[in-house]
Design a protein around this nucleic acid. Structure first.
Length: 414
RNA sequence: GUGGAUGUAGCUCAGCUGGUAGAGCAUUCGGUUGUGGUCCGAAAUGUCGCGGGUUCGAGCCCCGUCAUUCACCCCA
């Protein structure tokens, strides 16, 4: 016996039966984006390290200590993507997607990587669904993006979550606020680590969970009070549209997000049953990002939703159906002439989900397997049936039996 | 990166003050001939995370290590 291999530390992996829930959640989150005309962007899982340094921001924790960075065989510095937006921008710029009609509307889904200490809902490889709408700063798009995220959660069936929203304003707004915030923080007693954080990004202190810090920050100047007239009207419009959609939100002037590129509308969805890692999705507008990455000066807005966490949330709410992978029909062949496979194959071509009992197991065992699979119907296929072309189809839930011609089975299911 | 908790059958766990391991669920077979979900019977499954130490003897004690997990930090 050789070494017992183990998955690398902190990765999330999904195998049956839970993988069915993962797939379901992922598809639910993607569906509303497709319905709104967003198109697939399938991107590499790794990029030039510099893209994230510039895109995500040198001051963020993600860049300073959480990236999987390595040198490839050609001596290039490569990083496993820690988030989706920077890569999307790179692709949009590189392929000139922004040369046509605006906005560019794309969605993506896949694995992302962050070298953090794992805990509940936080993994080193995790999965996100995201969308980006680039090239318009109409508040209507902000509201649409938020509505699409919300529709995904609702489609999954989630109830116990909330939306927090604020505006970080434009450059003018932030500059004015920063002066006062730094002044305020200078007047406070901060421990070394906090002082250091304040220097890198003073907004971060709003995110501290310690009670004494929260109490201290209660008197701190809020960015929302420093918004320029344009920013203020823009944000008011976003809220008005959300009201019109009946989407409930909480104004969260202290909301802070981990990327440097956010400007204007910023939001986060949090679920109540998740423990410390409660954010199930978040996003916002970014005015400077595209330009900073060498593209034209366009604004964009997007979000990332955590599939792993939404799955956890759905499980916590107990809303996942247990028969997500159940077949329509379970075929139990008694002989070995292969006709079961032929029948199954024909039915599958008609979109009927069919499983076969394999192996030389007793009928009782095969029936048990059929039961376990959650199949709605079962057919026992013996010589008599194959000869006559007539089968008994049994509804597992009620035990009722019907006679059907094998040739008519597809019709039975469609 | 920092702190706490935990590592015993596929899963959930029990194992009394140290005497070389059990339960439930799951799995397979059976309870007479081709029909599941309940019930009954039987079988299979473990280098008790790994390495070292103490001891006549360690799943239980000590040290180390790895892993898992929760929280901080940060975020999806």
């Amino acid at each position: 016996m050789g070494k017992q291999f183990q998955a690398p530390k902190g990765v999330s992996e999904y195998f049956p039966p839970r993988s069915a829930g993962f797939e379901y959640v992922r598809d639910c989150l993607i569906a509303p984006a497709k319905l709104a005309g967003y198109e697939l962007l399938e991107l590499p899982a790794f990029e030039d390290t510099e893209l994230f340094n510039r895109g995500v921001g040198e001051s963020t924790d993600i860049v300073t200590k959480e990236m999987y960075t390595f040198e490839d065989r050609g001596g290039r510095s490569i990083t496993l993507r820690p988030e989706g937006t920077a890569g999307v921008m790179r692709a949009v710029i590189e392929h000139g997607l922004d040369r046509g009609q605006l906005p560019v509307k794309v969605w993506y889904a896949g694995a992302f990587f962050r070298a953090e200490r794992p805990q509940k809902g936080r993994y080193r490889q995790f999965y996100q669904v995201g969308i980006e709408a680039i090239g318009l700063d109409d508040p209507l798009i902000d509201a649409e993006v938020i509505a699409i995220a919300d529709a995904g959660f609702k489609r999954v069936g989630l109830k116990n979550y909330k939306l927090m929203i604020t505006s970080l304003g434009d450059a003018k707004s932030r500059a004015a606020h920063k002066v006062d915030l730094v002044k305020f923080l200078k007047g406070q007693k901060l421990d070394e680590a906090t002082a250091l954080r304040a220097e890198i990004n003073p907004l971060r202190i709003f995110d501290d969970k310690r009670e004494e810090v929260i109490a201290m920050m209660a008197k701190a100047p809020l960015l929302i009070d420093y918004l320029s007239t344009e920013s203020k009207t823009h944000f008011a419009k976003v809220c008005e549209y959300l009201d019109g959609l009946g989407i409930k939100y909480e104004l969260a002037p202290r909301l802070v997000r981990g990327f440097d590129y956010y400007t204007g509308t910023t939001f986060e969805f949090a679920h109540n049953d998740l423990g410390a890692q409660s954010a199930i999705g978040g996003g916002g507008r970014y005015d400077r990002l595209m330009n900073e990455l060498g593209g034209q000066d366009l604004s964009g807005i997007g979000y990332g939703l955590g599939i792993d966490r939404v799955l956890l949330a759905a499980e916590a709410e107990g809303i996942l159906k247990s028969d997500l992978s159940a077949p329509d029909l379970f075929l139990i062949p008694l002989g070995t002439d292969g006709s079961a496979l032929k029948i199954a194959n024909d039915l599958r071509n008609e979109n009927v989900k069919v499983e076969i009992a394999f192996g030389d197991r007793a009928l009782k065992g095969a029936m048990k397997a059929a039961d376990k699979s959650g199949a709605r119907y079962v057919i026992v296929l013996g010589e008599a049936e194959i000869q006559s072309g007539d089968v008994e189809i049994k509804a597992m839930a009620t035990g009722k039996v019907e006679r059907v011609r094998i040739a008519d089975l597809a019709k039975f299911f469609n």
